[in-house]
């Protein structure tokens, strides 16, 4: 995998884009833990589906919906 572009926040990625999760910001208490329990952890593949009204994405084989603030904390390496 060539690191052509830097990691981006999930909240700012165009629908249709695929990539991998690099990091989940730990700045908000138990946000990262709750995301982890849903499978949103570094290394997981991700496919962005929609940004509005909620952010919807496929993480590995799970479809998830999150509010924008949460999507802002997820860093994605685009492929």
């Amino acid at each position: 995998m060539s690191r052509s572009s830097p990691a981006q926040r999930l909240a700012s990625i165009e629908p249709g884009t695929r990539g991998h999760i690099v990091r989940v910001a730990r700045d908000h208490r138990d946000r990262a833990d709750r995301l982890m329990a849903l499978g949103v952890t570094p290394g997981a593949s991700i496919h962005v589906l929609q940004q509005f009204p909620s952010v919807v994405f496929m993480c590995d084989q799970t479809e998830l919906a999150v509010e924008p603030a949460v999507a802002d904390a997820i860093l994605v390496q685009i492929e």
Partner: peptide, 10 residues
């Protein structure tokens, strides 16, 4: 309140 993050079933 807690933040919105939810699994969508197929």
């Amino acid at each position: 309140r807690s933040e919105f993050m939810m699994e969508l079933p197929p």
